[in-house]
């Protein structure tokens, strides 16, 4: 690398928009913001060639804080919007971001079908096992005995959703978990996720310090997965079903080809369409 190209390298901070986040001090999402900027810088993706798409929630505010094209859409529909964009613009690096409520509750159906469809994009879910934005209700990943949710005072009593197991079963092509406290580790995983063809699912344990202050402990209890990523879904399933949700690292790398219908607008032969109607 010559000196002149070195000085044009985009630094992580150049991927920030400058809009000040609304997040509470100490929120795990700050760490994820940092990791995304490091990943984009690490890959030197030009800001105009990246699109970050989200729904609604604290974590879904992400696009606004990034210097890239962004879409802050409606609650739960980020993956659908991102899919449309990726089909129209396969040249872009498309990243969807959001929370556990956005992705697994209201957006659950799109999660299943986006894994199935396998478009070449990366989905970063900041899982805090709570609805932060609406002030602390239980989410699909909340422990059944968590009693602080105002709408579920005795705990939800229902089984938590296991996003990575579901992702695997539904056909996601890359599955990883990380902790927002490990900024560089998360950035590395995001880079791998972007590079891997097809739909890449990254669950980031990202504490909600306001409604789940006990999650501050996560940084001390997450453990790097003691094994390497597998491409065997059966092996991956066994691991994911038995882990406690605290293993980090790349857990699965699949080999399915990505979904990419060819869209290439042309009007050359538009008159041909008239033929079938002509008498």
């Amino acid at each position: 690398m010559t000196a002149s190209t070195a000085c044009t390298l985009l630094q992580p901070k150049e991927y920030k928009s400058g809009v000040k986040p609304v997040w509470c001090p100490g929120c795990g999402d700050f760490g994820v913001l940092g990791s995304i900027t490091k990943a984009l810088s690490g890959m030197q993706i030009q800001p105009e060639n990246a699109a970050v798409i989200s729904g609604i929630g604290c974590s879904s505010r992400m696009p606004t804080y990034l210097n890239a094209y962004g879409f802050h859409g409606v609650h739960g529909r980020a993956l659908a919007l991102a899919t449309g964009l990726k089909i129209a613009r396969p040249d872009l690096t498309v990243i969807a971001t959001g929370g556990d409520g956005d992705g697994f509750s209201i957006g659950g159906n799109h999660f299943l079908h986006t894994c199935r469809r396998n478009p070449d994009m990366t989905y970063i879910v900041m899982d805090n096992q709570v609805y932060g934005m609406t002030k602390g209700q239980a989410s699909p990943t909340t422990d059944p005995n968590w009693e602080k949710g105002k709408l579920t005072p005795g705990g939800t009593g229902i089984n938590p959703f296991q996003p990575l197991v579901i992702a695997l079963a539904s056909g996601a092509n890359f599955i990883a978990r990380s902790s927002s406290s490990d900024s560089n580790g998360t950035a590395r995983i995001i880079m791998e996720a972007i590079k891997h063809p097809g739909f890449s699912m990254v669950q980031v344990l990202s504490p909600c310090v306001t409604f789940r202050p006990e999650q501050r402990e996560w940084k001390n209890i997450v453990i790097p997965a003691p094994i390497d990523a597998t491409s065997d879904p059966a092996k991956a399933a066994r691991r994911l079903l038995t882990d406690e949700g605290l293993y980090t690292g790349i857990l699965y790398r699949g080999e399915r080809p990505a979904y990419q219908p060819a869209l290439k607008s042309s009007i050359d032969n538009i008159e041909e369409l008239d033929e079938e109607f002509r008498l």
Binding site: A80, G84, L85
Partner: peptide, 12 residues
């Protein structure tokens, strides 16, 4: 999904 996909493609 269809409505949001359409918005995404048009944004592109």
């Amino acid at each position: 999904a269809s409505m949001n996909q359409v918005i995404g493609a048009s944004f592109g």
